[in-house]
Design a protein around this nucleic acid. Structure first.
Lengths: 142, 142, 142, 142
DNA sequence: GTGGTCTAGACCACG
DNA sequence: GTGGTCTAGACCACC
């Protein structure tokens, strides 16, 4: 369970946690019945306030992804993998759609978009090999 | 000058206005010296708070895209087209980068991403022909 | 909009707020489109922390009862009355069920239960006329 | 001694145990001098943490309902039946009061409340005969 | 002015 | 040990 929080890409931390837990479940990095790191532990790892993690976990409970096991923590529900897998691409698609729509409605051609996508994919793949944990210095809006 | 505000796609309204004015300048839909609609008129068109338009125009002045003409309103500066053209793809790239990074760091494969992109591009193109809420291709651009 | 928070009846404050807003909508004490008191104002009235009110309002947004109007506050959605009316008795029923189940499974007879109910109803009605700690000023159309 | 724990009806498990032991004493299902099941046995039956049972028994000792018999376990005290009988309806009344108060202060009419009560009583009575999830009457007249 | 996010820390309930 | 609630207060973004 390694999460990658970006100190601000416009998405609130609690939601980044939320999304990434869902991705982890979809990817089987988190198995059914497995406990998610405790609020305090996760907060320590990410160097964020426990309340922030708590809120993310609360949202995940509301989404039926986590279930509280009294006194022991929060576990992945049996229904979670199905939910998360079906959501997996949607979570990305929804964000992508907004970006592409702006481009499209402002006369960026499909080919220009494809070129941007390829160049960014290339960049991400090189980052991985080089190491660069947080190369993106940009901000969504400020 | 038709702008397309989305009630909330995560980007503040004033910035949506700002970006779209820049795109319009880059696309020559707004010519040098041409006046931008007055704050009140634009606010009426978009059904947003005049303060919001005002803020966008302020930012555009700070960016050197607009310049106040005493008593008549705000006009596109001579330097604007160059600035806006060079920014054109960067504005999109910055947003795109954030989305792709999330996908990448969560085990979405490059091919899945490409597929999402293509399906969204297809969707956007059909929207235009089918119901065309925003007839971007309509004009002139010589 | 007078809410009656009980310092602790076992139900968290934010949920008491949540439930009572729903009741108010169901009772037409809160009309569609009407703004709910601001977080800070409500917090002042109830003498609770603004975050507590904020959480209640957040839950109400998630439930589709409130919708944020940028910069101006939170308004009752058009769908809210239907939702709240249909929930009105359910909210009570769910709590009631738990109490009655305990009684029933522990050999309290139906008649004893009815007697308790009547005596408590009587008590509540006299409270209102005698010292009325919470003079429900609402307006009952039906 | 069959107890009926509900995973979460808002009342902590230890208190559910506590209350139900009291009801059992009041109902003579538990006689003076009789031993209550051991912590481990009860914990096994209810599938709860032994600490939880332990806490319930501790509270019952504090209430003078149980008394430790060296080396053998916990027995019902001679004073218990009187105490429990007098508490019997109060335990229910206190919970009922909170529910009815909420209903009353939110414009639920007395008649609506009575109707809810009757429908829930009916429901409970049919449950017993139909599928009996909790066969309190134990023996099947079938 | 509005709500939203985040931090910090106290306290409680439960196991 | 776990999570949940609540308080307090800072800071931000938006209108």
């Amino acid at each position: 369970m390694r999460l990658h929080i970006e100190a601000s890409n416009g998405i609130p931390i609690y939601e980044q946690i939320c999304r990434q837990v869902k991705f982890a479940v979809a990817n089987r990095a988190l198995q059914v019945g497995e406990h998610v790191p405790s609020v305090r532990e996760m907060a320590g790892q990410l160097a964020v306030n426990p309340n922030t993690v708590s809120r993310a976990y609360r949202d995940l409970q509301a989404a039926g992804v986590l279930i509280p096991i009294r006194g022991t923590g929060l576990a992945v529900t049996p229904e979670a993998p199905a939910k998360c897998k079906s959501e997996r691409l949607d979570l990305i698609r929804d964000r992508l759609r907004l970006v592409l729509a702006e481009a499209h409605y402002n006369q960026i051609t499909d080919d220009e978009i494809r070129q941007l996508v390829e160049s960014e994919l290339h960049r991400l793949n090189s980052d991985v090999t080089e190491n660069s944990p947080l190369p993106v210095t940009t901000e969504e809006h400020a």
